[in-house]
């Protein structure tokens, strides 16, 4: 009897404990990104193999990345960016980054999985999201800093932005290498292959939708014809 009575209590407490554990792990995963971007070779190896990185943290970085991008477009001093704010669609901007990112991850997984890459899709996604961290760390403060710089000091701005992008590219490269346990040369080849694969995926999507719309158009016109004849 006592068990039945105490069960919900223990259930609740265990749930609370689980939530606490999850939160701790999440915070650790977030903090671990600092280790990853400074020690990419060790960091990416342990990221998925030792379970230091989590999907939740990766998603957080992705979200922050998209947010950074939008904030950068909207609030960087107009001296440094050429953005027609009145023509910007925030969701379009986000989508135009997120979609290629996912397609590239997918293409990479599809290609590497055939050539004994060790990473699963989820591993690739997590690693690539962690590779975006320097972009967030540098560009987000730069939005603020840009409003304290004058046109003549544009070089500071440009240099820092360039550094962030190069850092990200380097991390992505090392990340892929470690996730798949590839040699640098093989990684390089598969970067190219991934881009080709992404192009194929986009092509297939386009073909699919154009065929779909053709098919739909056929049925619509068929219906119209019949409705016209029957009347």
């Amino acid at each position: 009897m006592s068990t039945t009575k105490s069960k919900p209590v223990s259930d609740a407490s265990s749930r609370a404990a689980a939530r606490k554990a999850w939160w701790d792990r999440y915070v650790h995963a977030l903090k671990y990104s600092l280790h990853v971007i400074t020690h990419p070779f060790d960091g990416f190896w342990d990221l998925t193999r030792e379970g230091h990185g989590t999907l939740a943290a990766a998603n957080t970085f992705m979200l922050l990345f998209l947010l950074t991008r939008v904030l950068k477009l909207m609030y960087t001093s107009f001296q440094f960016v050429d953005v027609a704010v009145q023509h910007i669609n925030v969701f379009q901007q986000m989508g135009s980054l997120l979609l290629p990112f996912l397609i590239l991850c997918l293409a990479n997984w599809a290609m590497t999985t055939l050539f004994d890459g060790k990473g699963r899709f989820i591993d690739i996604y997590i690693a690539m999201c962690y590779a975006l961290v320097p972009y967030i760390l540098i560009q987000l403060p730069m939005v603020l800093v840009s409003n304290m710089l004058t046109f003549e000091e544009a070089s500071i701005h440009t240099v820092l932005l360039t550094v962030s992008v190069i850092w990200c590219a380097f991390l992505a490269f090392v990340g892929l290498m470690q996730i798949h346990d590839y040699s640098p040369g093989k990684t390089l080849i598969f970067v190219v292959v991934t881009v080709v694969g992404a192009a194929v995926i986009i092509f297939l999507i386009l073909v699919f939708f154009s065929l779909l719309s053709d098919a739909l158009g056929f049925f619509v016109s068929l219906y119209r014809e019949m409705a016209f004849r029957l009347n």
Partner: peptide, 12 residues
Amino acid sequence: RESYGRAFKLYR
């Protein structure tokens, strides 16, 4: 931009 930069520099 250039004039803005100059004005901003003085303002700063």
